[in-house]
Amino acid sequence: MTETDPSHRVRVEPLGVSFDAPESLTLLEAGGFAGVSLPRSCRNGTCRSCLCRIVSGTVRYTIEWPGLSREEKAKGYTLPCVAIATSDVIVDVPDATVV
């Protein structure tokens, strides 16, 4: 990592595994490089296979409006395939696995 590519710690619950997510990668990509498999399919924010909830922390999106309703965003839901950590993050992903 360089100073121009800050990294944040992502913790996946209930799996209890953490990994670093540089701001150049989505949560899904960073998890994959760290050996953490999150549910996925389209990888572009439309299929919602990766839908999960942010317990704490903040993200920004690689697309203008990911496939989430305003209500879902307000309740903390996110799509890791298009979400980039902007702080340390805890996500609730019941179907995550270590590969």
Rank of each mutant, 00 (worst) to 15 (best):
M1N: 09
T2A: 07
T2D: 11
T4C: 00
T4F: 01
T4R: 05
D5E: 08
S7D: 01
R9W: 00
V10K: 08
V10Y: 04
V10R: 03
R11M: 11
V12R: 02
V12P: 02
V12F: 05
E13G: 00
P14F: 08
L15N: 02
G16K: 07
G16P: 09
S18D: 15
S18L: 08
F19K: 00
F19A: 01
D20G: 05
D20H: 06
D20F: 02
P22T: 05
P22R: 07
E23F: 00
S24M: 01
L25W: 04
T26Y: 09
L27Q: 05
L27M: 10
G31Y: 04
G32T: 04
A34G: 09
A34C: 11
G35R: 09
V36K: 08
L38S: 06
L38V: 10
P39H: 06
P39S: 10
P39R: 01
R43G: 03
N44A: 11
N44Y: 09
G45W: 12
T46A: 10
T46D: 06
T46Y: 05
T46M: 12
C47D: 11
C47R: 07
C47Y: 11
C47M: 07
S49F: 14
S49V: 13
S49G: 02
S49Y: 14
C50S: 13
C50K: 12
L51D: 05
L51K: 10
C52W: 04
R53D: 06
V55W: 00
V55S: 09
S56P: 03
G57T: 00
G57I: 01
T58V: 02
T58A: 15
V59Q: 02
R60K: 14
T62P: 12
T62N: 13
I63E: 07
I63Q: 13
E64L: 07
E64A: 14
E64K: 11
W65H: 15
P66F: 11
G67N: 09
G67R: 09
L68R: 15
L68A: 12
S69E: 15
S69M: 11
E71Q: 01
E72V: 06
E72T: 03
K73G: 02
K73D: 06
A74F: 10
K75H: 11
K75T: 06
K75G: 05
G76N: 08
Y77S: 02
Y77W: 14
T78W: 09
L79Q: 15
C81P: 14
V82E: 15
I84T: 15
A85G: 09
T86E: 15
D88K: 05
D88N: 14
V89C: 10
V89G: 14
V89R: 14
V89L: 07
I90W: 01
D92G: 06
P94E: 04
P94M: 04
P94Q: 11
D95R: 15
A96E: 08
T97P: 03
T97M: 06
T97H: 02
